Simulated assay, not measured.
Amino acid sequence: MHIVRRRDHDRYGQTFKELRIAKGVSLSNAAKNVVSKSFLSRFERDQSNIVFDKLYRLLLNINFSVEEFVYINNQRNNRYQPFHYEDTKDYVDQQIIENSNKLGKYYYQRWINNQIEYDYVNFLKEKSIMEKHHIAKVSQKEKQFLYNYLFAKET
């Protein structure tokens, strides 16, 4: 378990709060299934440290990646070094795979049940993420469907 500790010049909680508010996500929804609302409030006021796993899941709740969060936090603190993705790659990749697998199954089932193309597009999006990790293969027929769908929406 890796604890994200703030240094005197880091304000991870404040950065998180700004991003949460910018996304229009309530404190309750951001904390949902990860931490208590009161803990998240303390974290946002930089009064509590947080383990990386929980920070990662909180970022998922507000639809931000670890890379985006670290980059923005570095910008806020006038540190302009690149984020070293390799430091968290194994953990983040595993989380991406698990989330894409769950979402893919969810959207596929919705598509089977109601035949709404949007659900099939979302299923294929998750499948393409899995393909990047060499776990799934998007067929030529599926790629053609995506091309046709996206082309029709753009025009």
Rank of each mutant, 00 (worst) to 15 (best):
K89F: 09
E98K: 14
K105P: 06
E117P: 07
N101C: 14
K127N: 07
V121C: 06
Y106E: 06
V92M: 04
Q94L: 13
D90L: 08
K132E: 11
Q109G: 01
K89D: 01
Y120K: 06
Y106G: 02
R110T: 07
D93V: 10
Q95H: 12
H84F: 05
F123S: 03
Y108M: 07
K127M: 06
K125D: 09
Q109R: 04
E117F: 12
Y85R: 13
F123D: 04
K132R: 12
D119F: 02
E131M: 06
N113W: 02
Q115V: 04
E86T: 05
M130S: 12
T88I: 05
P82H: 11
Y91D: 03
H84S: 09
K132S: 09
Q115F: 02
L124Y: 05
D93R: 11
Q81Y: 14
I97H: 05
N99A: 14
I97Q: 05
L103H: 15
E131K: 02
Y118I: 13
E126G: 05
F83P: 00
K89I: 01
K102A: 13
I116K: 12
Q115G: 02
Q94T: 13
V121G: 09
L103Y: 15
Y108H: 09
D93G: 04
V92S: 02
I129F: 01
M130P: 00
T88Y: 13
H84Y: 08
K105R: 12
Q81L: 14
G104H: 01
Y120I: 02
K105I: 05
V121H: 07
D93L: 08
V121L: 14
E98Q: 15
G104Y: 00
Y106T: 01
K105M: 10
P82M: 10
I112P: 00
V92W: 05
R110M: 09
Y106F: 14
D90T: 13
N122C: 15
Y80G: 08
Y120V: 00
D90G: 05
S128Q: 07
N114H: 11
Q115T: 04
N114T: 08
K89C: 01
K132V: 01
N122I: 10
I116E: 15
K132M: 10
E131Y: 03
Y80I: 11
Q115E: 09
I112H: 03
Q95L: 09
D90H: 10
I116Q: 12
E86I: 09
Q81D: 13
S100K: 01
I96W: 07
D119K: 03
E117D: 14
Y106K: 10
G104K: 06
W111L: 07
V92T: 10
E126D: 15
Y107T: 11
L103F: 14
K125T: 11
D93K: 11
N122T: 13
F123P: 04
I129H: 01
G104C: 09
V121F: 12
